[in-house]
């Protein structure tokens, strides 16, 4: 088996506070292979964006990576200097964020922004960079790219702007793309176009992608594997079809049941009582235990490891049928 493009091991992100360190990402391990899309799903505050930010080296101080390691093609990138990180961001790791309007500079044409990024990363001449910019705009599906290259961001629709942002992320020919809610600000018909584009680019360019979203439907259609986060911890990780069809962790099961379906009617949706704990009030043991219908005394005291079935739940301890404990 080939080596993963990204490997995150036991990542821990902390924010100091008067009441002690708040742990936003707590012992998360995951990896992404070439051409693979890993979905990262969870509710607000679950730590999904923070994981992406940590990989990009964009955790705002006083927040910091307190433990664990992040490897890009085997090479450690956590703890690098700002300068070294700047050389990696954009060049080897591309980023796409939710709001395309704030990701673009309103004062420059999209062509100028693309060409600047290309020249910064690839050391090309002006004319070559412009030609490359045009090629990128075509690749991300901007119609009549040659006439639109000198337009400003506000002259594009939301969907077209997000395509430009994707083109910008591709400018340095990165090995890994971190896409954080890339379609949340877009309408459904545009969302489908952008997701299809992302998938095609990963396949064609052999890029690895981390798709951070709250939308399980988006994950089901786009990702190859999915990591479900809860209260900064990995609750479950596995192939997308498995996790969607046969979720193992009680949180994932509740999450799936709470999503209204497009294809069938139910009288009432599954309800998970309560809400996700705040970072300063994470219960001991399994973070999900106060909301879990199947919690045992052990769940209230001891934190479950990620079992071989790739669910962090004590129910797996006896019924581990997908191999030994990890």
């Amino acid at each position: 088996m080939s080596d993963p493009v990204l490997e995150v091991r036991n990542l821990r992100v902390e924010f100091p506070s008067r009441a002690g360190a708040l742990v936003a990402v707590d012992d998360i391990s995951l990896s992404i292979m070439r051409g693979e899309v890993l979905g990262v799903v969870g509710e607000s505050g679950a730590g999904k964006s923070m994981t992406g930010m940590a990989i990009l080296g964009l955790i705002e101080p006083p927040g910091r990576i307190a433990a664990g390691e992040i490897r890009l093609k085997g090479e450690r990138i956590d703890g690098l200097s700002d300068r070294a990180l700047e050389a990696i961001r954009g060049r080897r790791i591309g980023a796409i964020f939710q709001d395309p309007l704030t990701s673009l500079n309103p004062l420059f044409t999209v062509g100028a922004q693309l060409a600047e990024t290309i020249r910064l990363h690839l050391r090309l001449g002006k004319a070559e960079a412009r030609a490359r910019a045009l090629a990128l705009m075509r690749e991300v599906g901007i119609p009549a790219a040659e006439s639109r290259i000198d337009h400003y961001p506000h002259q594009f629709s939301g969907g077209m702007r997000q395509r430009i942002v994707i083109a910008l992320a591709l400018a340095g020919e990165p090995e890994l793309i971190i896409a954080d809610e890339p379609t949340t600000a877009l309408d459904v018909s545009i969302q489908a176009q952008i997701l299809a584009l992302l998938k095609r680019l990963c396949r064609d360019r052999g890029m690895a992608a981390m798709l951070v979203t709250h939308d399980m439907g988006v994950i089901a259609e786009t990702a190859d594997r999915v990591a479900v986060l809860y209260a900064g911890r990995l609750a479950e990780i596995g192939p997308v079809a498995e996790v969607v069809r046969r979720p193992r962790h009680p949180y994932t099961q509740g999450l799936m049941g709470s999503i209204p379906s497009l294809r069938r009617d139910v009288e009432a949706l599954t309800q998970i009582p309560g809400s996700m704990p705040r970072l300063d009030a994470i219960p001991p043991g399994c973070a999900f235990n106060p909301r879990c219908g199947r919690a045992t005394p052990r769940c209230r005291t001891e934190r479950p490891p990620l079992f071989g079935g790739a669910s962090a739940c004590w129910l797996e301890a006896g019924a581990d049928d997908r191999g030994a404990a990890a």
């Binding site: 459904v188 018909s189 969302q191 489908a192 176009q193 997701l195 299809a196 939308d215 399980m216 439907g217 988006v218 089901a220 259609e221 786009t222 969607v244 799936m256 999503i259 379906s261 497009l262 294809r263 069938r264």
Partner: peptide, 15 residues
Amino acid sequence: TIPDLTAPRRDRAPM
């Protein structure tokens, strides 16, 4: 075009 959990269509050609 709406992504669906129960019947995901991974090969869609979006409109």
